[in-house]
Simulated assay, not measured.
Amino acid sequence: MAAGSTLPRRALGRQLRKLRERNEISQNGAARIIETSPQTYGRLEEGKVTKTTDLIINALANAFRADDVERRLLLDLAQEIRQAPTSKAGLWRAHADVIPKAFNHFLGLEESASHVVSWQTTLVPGLLQTREYRRALVWAEHPDMPPEEVERVLDLVVKRQELLTNSDFRFDAILSEAVLHYLVGGPGVTSDQFRHLVELSEIPNVSVRIVPFTAKSPVGLLTRSFVMFGFGPLPTSKQIEPPVVYVEGFVGDLYLERDVEVTQYVDVSQKLADVALPEAASRDLLLARINKELGE
């Protein structure tokens, strides 16, 4: 995975699909134009890694009767893909053997996002987890994992959290109060985790808010945990990709991109924000949980 290339690839695929369908050309027909397989062309429209040379883009632009503005946009997006930063890509490659294959796409979206909203009903979000909290989760899911491999997983988690030091990145965590009542790794690990949440909530670009059990709206009970990625404009083309919603499952993950689906999650996010405690009251609840219920 080339770090930073996820968004321009998605934008390029979206534009190619729009132009192809406008001209009533099938994917098979488009594949024949650039002398490749339908599967390879399909990957191009899906925003997956494949060749994006100017020769290929111009051939498609000709076949799809793109005007000058549309052609320039396609070429700008292809250039952004090729010039995407590679520094973080080396980080992910170094940890490739401990990253679940399906999680690569999540990492690409997380790197590219300018704003992330995470609604969690049982666990602290990964970007806010302490090393020991995450260690307890890894051992619970993979009790036979070799210790050295566990440490590499934890190293990756810590590297991901460097995003929080970027003032242009905004992270909004909305947590069910239930999260505060699950002991992960024992009282000591859990209380340290909650202290960490309090500290992180003081960072200007990080918000931690709790939806209390007494919330008037039950919307949080009806919605599974999810992460919503929002994106800023791409540097050259200035295109803004629509949000993507990630819903994690025990045996499979969902990435939702259709407007009708994403709009529903945008609406739910707002409703959750409406019933969540303010940040100061959320910190007070975290501190009360540490001091009283964890016996300190």
Rank of each mutant, 00 (worst) to 15 (best):
V153I: 12
D144R: 11
A30L: 05
R195A: 04
A89C: 06
F171E: 11
H142E: 11
P218K: 04
R209L: 13
E151S: 15
A59V: 01
F226E: 02
L156I: 08
S225D: 14
E149N: 11
H181T: 03
M1H: 06
E132H: 10
S114M: 03
V179Y: 13
T86Y: 02
P235L: 10
G47T: 09
L75K: 01
L12D: 10
V184Q: 05
L180K: 11
H95I: 10
I25L: 14
P204S: 14
E70W: 00
N104G: 13
R170F: 07
D76F: 01
G29M: 10
N28E: 13
N166E: 14
G42S: 15
R131D: 11
E149D: 12
R258Q: 15
A178Q: 09
G232T: 06
R134K: 11
E296M: 13
P187K: 13
S269N: 08
V49M: 04
F106K: 01
R283D: 12
Y246F: 14
F169L: 08
Q193S: 07
D67M: 05
S114C: 12
S282C: 10
L123A: 12
W119S: 02
E141A: 15
L91P: 01
V268P: 00
Q270P: 01
V219F: 02
S167V: 10
R43T: 13
L91K: 10
E162K: 14
K18L: 15
A136M: 05
R224I: 00
P8T: 13
L44K: 05
H196W: 12
G220F: 12
L19P: 02
P85L: 07
F229D: 06
T223C: 09
F226C: 03
I81H: 11
L19C: 04
T122F: 02
Y255I: 03
H196I: 04
L16I: 03
T52G: 04
S176V: 09
R14C: 03
L164T: 05
E261W: 09
A2C: 00
I34A: 08
S225V: 08
L200D: 04
A61F: 04
R10N: 02
L19H: 01
F226H: 06
R134M: 14
E111W: 08
L75T: 12
E111H: 13
Q161T: 08
S201P: 09
E80S: 08
L277W: 09
N58G: 03
A288L: 07
Q15P: 00
Y265K: 04
E70K: 03
L156D: 07
L180Y: 12
E241T: 07
R43Q: 14
A30I: 04
D253C: 06
V266L: 14
T6Y: 02
W119F: 15
K88Y: 15
W92K: 01
W92Y: 15
R10Q: 15
G188I: 12
E141N: 13
R224N: 12
G185T: 11
L180T: 13
E261G: 06
V206G: 11
L222K: 08
